[in-house]
Design a protein around this nucleic acid. Sequence first.
DNA 1: AGTAAGCGCCGCCATG
DNA 2: CTCATGGCGGCGCTTA
Length: 337
Amino acid sequence: MIQSFRSKAKQKNIVVVVTPGVALLDIAGPCDVFNFANQIAREEKLHPEAYLIIMASATRAHRATTGPGVVLANLIPVWEITAAIDTLIIAGSPVARLEKPDEAFYQWLREAHKKTQRTASVCVGAFVLAKAGILKNQKATTHWEYAKQLQSSFPSLRVDDHLFVASNKRVYTSGGISSGIDLSLKLVEEDLGREIAAKVARKLVVPLRRTGTQGGQFGALLSAVELNTKLASGVKDWLDSNLTKHVTVEQMADQANMSPRNFARVFAKETRLTPGKFLEKLRVEKAKQMLEETDLRLKQISARCGLGSLISMRRTFLRHVSISPSGYRNTFQKSAV
DNA sequence: AGTAAGCGCCGCCATG
DNA sequence: CTCATGGCGGCGCTTA
């Protein structure tokens, strides 16, 4: 019985726009998230059918070949969509970074965006939103490999390549290919609440909110790329035993026997990270570890990581992990069984 | 809350 | 000529 469902909210139309060469995961991620959200909302008697997923094509063709060769059929060219679009998702693909799709598509996109509740991109789909002018002056992210290109092509954007999802009022961008999942989970959380989103995440066996950076290992702030460089790994050992102290970049340079200027330059080239940022990440990493594995007071943890006062640890922590230290502990502390 | 001080970062230029 | 290094000064973020 319809009456038994708690939510009176209308069904939302999710339009996923694909272009040829799209990574399968770019579209599979969002599709599965919304589909599982439907399923769970139904089971929970919250909503009989929360989402309708519409697969659309950015070209006149009704089919598109994905990067791995799987052919998507029965696509609806965007111009033929008649339903009101609640959420528009532009999936990334190699052509998304080029001048394609054509001007007609961009015109459609600009018009459509005026009417959507939310417009989003996965991976390099951000280039499409940027070209359409939708990201002007907004915070944005994309696949980290293309973040620089995005920033230089569209200087007004504030590109942050370590984010998985960047959200503004109505516009969302997400990072690497798999982050379409993170993006969609966030949208589901907004629509159906945290509990449902968490259940979807559990079903997919992914964290509800990924912490850390793109390219980083799961939950790790510092990626192998950043740590496996000569400079970083060399300095890291020394840093680990000096984290409680106030460390300057100059001291780090000393450890590497280089001038501060040159150290900073070479370090940045190798790791894509400035020495200061690296140090900060290392401190937060250590704090995360202690929050997970110990019962130490926040203040003690802060001291041991060199993150300063409780206030400043909180601030720094929020910047990197997007939740407070105590919130992080609540979610991730390993229960003492 | 608004300001001042400190520090890291980066562009620019000089040197080897 | 180029490439790696290093010094200087200004800008901006963080903290007190």
